Every structure is written in structure tokens, then in C-alpha cells.
Simulated assay, not measured.
Amino acid sequence: MLDLTKLAGQMPGISQHLKQEVKAGQKRLETAKELLERAKQRQVHLVEAQQKWRDRALFAAATPLEPLDTRINLFAPPERHTVFATDGSQIAPSHHEVAYCYLINVGRVMLHYGQSLLPLLDSLPEVFYKAEDLYVSKQWGIRTEEWMGHRRMVSEAQMLAEMACRWVKPPGAHPGPNLAMVDGSLIYWFLEGLPGEARDRLLPPIIEAWAQLQEARIPWMGYLSAARSGEATNFLRYEACPHPTPDCTTRCNNLERFPCQIVDPLRDTSLWEHLLQPGQRGPLWASSARILELYPEEQRVYFCYVHVGTEIARVEVPQWVIEDEALLNQSLSIMLAQVHKGYGYPVALAESHNQAVVRGGDRARFFSLLEQQMIRAGLRNVGTSHKEARKRGSIA
């Protein structure tokens, strides 16, 4: 039980620390604005320097594809369109339960606008209990719980493609404006640290699902709320560099803090919050994530920041979408309408999460159903561990 009386004594120190952080953040923001104004005048030179010295940089910085002062107003979406979304949840394996297994539940949502069609809101559960599912990741030093999260990501992409493509391909179906959405980034940074064999089990099925969407001409989008990235702001470090060339490895490798690190840790969203008006997007950026080198060229991910009214959202789309300006603007307008319908967050993503979430009661019913099936199969001594039983029936 949390002792609020003891906790209250720590509150003044926390509030004082946050007050100091706000003051320091304002100073970093003003510095970033000044660097941005200077960088606008030298953008071509800075991009050339970034490309030339990229391998010598000790920080990750995105590359702007448009002028830094780009401001694009987004308009109302087409009256007739369809939005697809998936999100996942899971029940983690536990040695204290009746059986060591895990469950992935993927929520699916298909919302039609201007078409007088019923929506699709459901979820698809899948149980993993075989040895090859439970212990395959051990050979790479990956915990089962972590591997389960990776498998969920694959399932979300596959079910999104299956749902969307099934809708647009049947004879008589209206291909009309469509948008597929996922919650979170399309740049799977964590794959960089995985062994190649493990990565090859995760990325190819996702790429295949994206290829199906591309073939059906369905743009997909990653929506990041409260994004913590500083990729775009880090580009300003090339302007802040005091040296003739941004050769970090030679000039700054032994320093505790780089001289160009004058706005760190300012987030991209904190800067663009003061630069964009509601309903506007900023310039497109190319991420410097090395994992993108394993993506097919037409599926490499680019991003921009959009003022959705309630916050600055980071929106990620594949290359083939940004190459079609009309399709990009249409996709962003549908996304913005989803945010307005969801009162600050895309309604399709919110509903797919609600369909996917596994609550405590669902977890108990799942293991109860599993226990019944095990007893029917003739298994004996079926039940939870003494530890789990004691925790559930505490007398304290």
C-alpha cells in the first residue's frame, strides 16, 4: 500500500526541480529558434555537409527534404473514404499459471465514411504454446516476453494488410480513398540490436504485408502521439558546430559534452509546437536510422510533424506515398479528421486499442478456460502455483 503521508514530503523537491527544468527548456527553445533561422539560409550547405560527414557523426540527425520554413495547410478529407487500423495486446507467459503459454490479441477496426456501410470492430486472439514458439528466442538471448512483443508487431502488420486488401480487392468494391493506420513508429529501431537470424524472422513478414498494401494502393501511416524523438532538432547541431567540418570522431570523441549540444535534450515536438499553426504540417524529413537500409527503397520511412490541434504529432509514411503529393495530402487530411473525430487522438486507433486490450477479468477467464480443457484432456494436478494462489487470496 502506498503511504501518501510519506510521499507528500517529496513533492516540494519534485516541483522545484520541474520549475528549474521549465526555465532551462525555455532557454533551449530560444536557442533552437535562433539556430533554425540561421539554418534556413544555409540549408543546402548543411545538408551537403551532413551527407559528406555522416559516417563521422556521433549523433543521429534526420535530413530535411523540403525547406525548413515549409508550412502546408491541410484541408478537409474526401467525403467518401475508409480507414483501417490495428493494435495489439497480450497475456504474458507465467510459470505460476496452469500452463506456460502466451496470447496475442489484435484489435481490428474498419470505419467507412460517406458510404452507408457498417464498421468492423473486432479482435483476433492467437495462443502460442508450442516449444518452438516459447523458446525459439532463447538461442539469441532474447527473453520470451520481449519476443512476444516482437511477434505482436508482426501480427498487427499482417492483419492490417489482410483486412484492408480484402476490402478493396473484391469485385464491386469501391477502391476510393483509403488509409491504413498503426499506433507508433514504422521505423523499428530495436531491430538494429537483434541478431540477423532473429531479425530475419520479424522484418520480412512485415515488409511483405506492406507490399500487399502498396500493390492495392492503400497508403499506411504510423501515428506517434507525444513523440520523444530529437532527430529533426539534431540537424541544427550542424549549424551549431564550431569547427570547419563536422568531424565528430576526430574533434569531439573524447569530450563529455559536444559543443554543438546546446539545445539537447529539446524534443522535436517542443520546437515545432511554436512553429506550426493548427492544421499545418512542417517539412518532410528522412530518418537516419540504419535499420532503414534493410527496407525496400519504395518502403523506406519518412516523417513530418503535424499540428493536429491538441498536440504536435509525428507522422510517418513510406517513400512511395511521399512521391505522390496528392496522395500524401489526402492521407494527412484523413488522419487529421480522425484526430478531430477522436477528440485529440485518431478514433480508429483508439477503437483498435479498445478492441485489443486484455483486462484482468479477460486474463482470468482465459486461464480458467484453459484449465477446464486440460482437465477434460485427462491432465492431473492442474492449477496455479502456491505463490500465485497466495497473492490472489491475501488476508492482509
Rank of each mutant, 00 (worst) to 15 (best):
Q10E: 15
M11P: 01
P12T: 06
I14P: 01
H17C: 08
R28W: 03
L29A: 03
E30G: 05
L35M: 03
L35H: 03
L36E: 00
Q41F: 09
Q51G: 14
K52R: 12
W53Q: 01
L68R: 12
L68N: 07
N73K: 10
P78I: 00
V83H: 02
D87C: 05
G88H: 03
S89D: 11
H95I: 14
E97K: 04
E97P: 02
V98N: 12
Y113F: 10
L117C: 06
L118N: 07
D122T: 15
Y135W: 15
E162W: 02
H174F: 09
G176E: 07
P177I: 12
N178I: 00
E192N: 14
L194P: 02
A198R: 01
R201F: 01
Q214D: 12
R217M: 10
I218P: 01
P219Y: 00
F235S: 04
T245H: 07
T249K: 13
L255V: 06
D268V: 06
W272K: 06
L275M: 10
L284G: 00
E293H: 13
R300T: 08
V301L: 12
Y305G: 03
V306H: 14
H307Y: 09
V308Y: 08
Q319I: 04
W320E: 10
V321F: 03
I322L: 05
Q330W: 09
S331R: 06
L332G: 04
L332M: 10
G342R: 05
G342T: 09
G342Y: 10
Y343T: 06
N354C: 11
G360A: 00
Q372I: 13
R376Q: 15
R380Q: 07
G383V: 07
R390H: 13
A396P: 04
A396N: 14
